[in-house]
């Protein structure tokens, strides 16, 4: 298993270094326009936050996997874990925001010792869509997690899970040896309790990230191929496939640089720039909360330590009037969300 950038003491573990790379080179020389310049061409600068609809909570960077493209740089060696006190502050905020979606992510959110308590309490608040981003293998990793499908069902959780391909080779290359087999077992367990079945209210969606330095293909075509292959080969069913572009940060940035693909990838992102996607980027209706309670425009900005442009920097300071209408913090990684059909945690945006 590879180690996180933090454990390796890589210079890219430092978010400032990542931001330098994203602002220098081809963007400093003018070979490619900076994101702010690009969205200015269509009068979309500055990006402003609209009404909060999605509260995305990162409950910790600890994970049982070390995926090669992970923008969180998550892994077993990451010890950043949200406390119950911060979760309690979040619960108070959920009640007053009126956000229709609560989205728990990590790392592997299930590894937070207060995960089940938080799900039980948050499900009482009555958000319309309560998402848990489960990496699937956590369900098979330890006996104490084997009943997660039943626990998710009990709280009507919308399960969203990563699956880079319907074949073992491509999946294990991106997510680690043995991940594919365990993911298949976990999906079969989820199907067995009703998740992902046609007409079922127990929502099971999959996330596809390209396993290399290329952009995702058409989401609808990919979904068709995934559904056919998973059903024929393993009898597995799911609802929707979200095709998500890999953003050039953290471990994926490390891969791009090491494989000498960084410049070509940035050119591809800029060439695929779609102004129509800018209108629907997720940062305009989302707020991302880090494990220690700080607020960011999205999970990517959280990892780059780009805080919200607001006096309310922490969940304990949350005030709608201080956050609505704020200017979104941007850098060149934002091209990842505006390429082609656009990309968000819910897949394409156009």
């Amino acid at each position: 298993m590879i180690k996180s950038l933090h454990k390796r003491e890589s210079e890219l573990a430092n978010s400032k270094r990542q931001l330098e790379i994203l602002s220098n080179g081809i963007f400093q020389s003018g070979d490619l326009p900076k994101f702010a310049e690009k969205i200015s061409e269509t009068g979309q600068f500055p990006l402003k936050a609209k009404k909060l609809e999605i509260l995305q909570v990162n409950v910790g960077y600890m994970c049982n996997q070390v995926c090669s493209h992970c923008h969180v740089d998550a892994g077993p060696d990451r010890k950043e874990i949200m406390t119950r006190e911060t979760m309690q502050q979040i619960l108070k905020v959920i009640e007053k925001t009126g956000a229709h979606t609560l989205d728990l992510t990590g790392g592997a959110p299930e590894m937070n010792p207060n995960f089940r308590w938080f799900v039980e309490e948050a499900s009482k608040v009555g958000v319309k869509d309560f998402i848990v981003r489960s990496n699937l293998t956590i369900i098979r990793a330890n006996k104490k997690h084997h009943d997660l499908p039943e626990f998710f069902k009990q709280h009507n959780i919308h399960v969203v899970s990563s699956m880079p391909h319907w074949t073992k080779g491509k999946t294990d290359k991106q997510r680690g040896d043995g991940v594919f087999d365990k993911s298949i077992q976990a999906l079969q367990q989820l199907n067995a309790v009703g998740y992902g079945m046609p007409g079922s209210s127990l929502k099971l969606d999959l996330v596809y990230n390209p396993s290399g330095a290329f952009l995702p293909g058409d989401q609808a075509s990919m979904e068709k191929d995934f559904k056919k292959a998973l059903l024929e080969d393993f009898g597995i069913q799911f609802h929707n496939l979200f095709a998500i572009t890999n953003l050039p940060i953290s471990r994926f940035l490390d891969y791009l640089i090491a494989s000498e693909n960084y410049e070509d990838y940035m050119y591809a992102l800029v060439e695929a720039y779609n102004p129509a996607a800018v209108a629907n980027v997720m940062c305009t209706n989302t707020l991302s909360v880090s494990w220690d309670g700080y607020l960011y425009d999205c999970d990517f900005n959280q990892m780059l330590q780009l805080p919200v442009n607001s006096k309310a920097k922490h969940i304990s300071d949350y005030q709608t009037e201080l956050l609505e209408g704020r200017t979104i913090a941007i850098s060149q990684h934002c091209y990842g969300c505006t390429a082609g059909a656009g990309s968000s945690c819910q897949g394409s945006v156009t």
């Binding site: 391909h165 080779g169 390209p210 293909g217 191929d225």
Partner: peptide
């Protein structure tokens, strides 16, 4: 080759 990768076509 790029189009194939984007469509999830495997190297095999």
């Amino acid at each position: 080759t790029g189009d194939g990768l984007q469509r999830g076509i495997t190297k095999e």
